[in-house]
């Protein structure tokens, strides 16, 4: 029985991680095309990634959009999460479901809808459009993740602070925020990664001259079939892994997600 269990576990891990390993190997290829097994080993494609001008620009766009939309989604999501956890909100369930809709509705639909009803009517430039879209996409994460850590916090510590002379806002700052900061950090990390890796919604909103990194990569792969794409993918995957691993170690991300 034990042997079967182990075998299944190994098979499962191979299924999950295998493709990434293959990709990592092709990224180290010395050859001219994306192929397996790689045609000799070298770091030339890793280096090549940094020479492609448009990747540098789209990386900066992605970074800006990810950081800004994470901040916006927390600014909007935190008060919502607080309201849900502390008060009986009229139509609370419906509002909660509505706030989750950006992750339930397929990205393609969200992207098209935003394009038709927000971006075009309000004449948003691509950066503005991406910020609006990603903020909306990340709100469900911040509401849920911050909500989970608020749920573990007693309401009466706020009352205790108020009775000792604190204002409501002061109590939030001095006794609520310090106790949910791990949840807020977890929501930020999750939001950043989600935004940074976003494809289907961004696809509709990027315009001439402005693209996010994943969209740029998609365009590149359609035109060119060299291992630089594998190299970039591996670098991004490793970056994500490091962020998630560090967050897990420091904050226990798995408690919230």
């Amino acid at each position: 029985m034990k042997l079967i269990g182990r075998t299944l576990l190994v098979a499962q891990l191979l299924f999950l991680i295998g493709p990434l390993l293959l990709l990592a190997l092709t990224a180290l290829s010395a050859g001219e095309t994306l192929e397996f097994p790689p045609d000799g080993l070298s770091l030339r494609w890793m280096a090549r990634v940094f020479e492609i001008e448009s990747f540098r620009a789209s990386f900066m766009t992605s970074l800006l959009v990810a950081v800004a939309s994470t901040v916006f989604s927390l600014l909007l999501g935190l008060p919502a999460a607080y309201a849900f956890s502390r008060y009986t909100v009229p139509f609370g369930e419906a509002i909660r479901l509505f706030l989750s809709s950006p992750i339930i509705v397929p990205g393609i639909v969200v992207g098209l809808a935003l394009l038709d009803f927000v971006v075009v009517p309000f004449a948003l430039d691509p950066i503005g459009a991406l910020l609006v879209a990603h903020t909306a996409l990340l709100i469900p994460y911040s509401v849920r993740v911050v909500g989970a850590s608020l749920a573990g916090l007693r309401v009466d510590i706020e009352e205790a602070a108020v009775l000792l002379g604190s204002t409501r806002l002061g109590a939030f700052r001095s006794v609520v925020l310090p106790n949910i900061q791990n949840g807020v950090m977890a929501a930020a990390v999750l939001g950043f990664i989600t935004s940074f890796n976003q494809v289907p919604v961004s696809l509709f909103l990027t315009g001439p001259g402005v693209s996010t990194l994943p969209i740029d990569m998609l365009a590149y792969v359609e035109a060119t079939f060299d291992p630089s794409m594998a190299a970039l993918s591996v670098m991004l995957a490793v970056l994500s892994l490091i962020i998630v691993f560090a967050t897990e170690r420091l904050l226990g991300l798995s408690k919230y997600v």
Binding site: R154, D156, A160, V175, P178, N179
Partner: peptide
Amino acid sequence: FQSYALFPH
């Protein structure tokens, strides 16, 4: 408070 309501941090 019945639950003490100490500030955990």
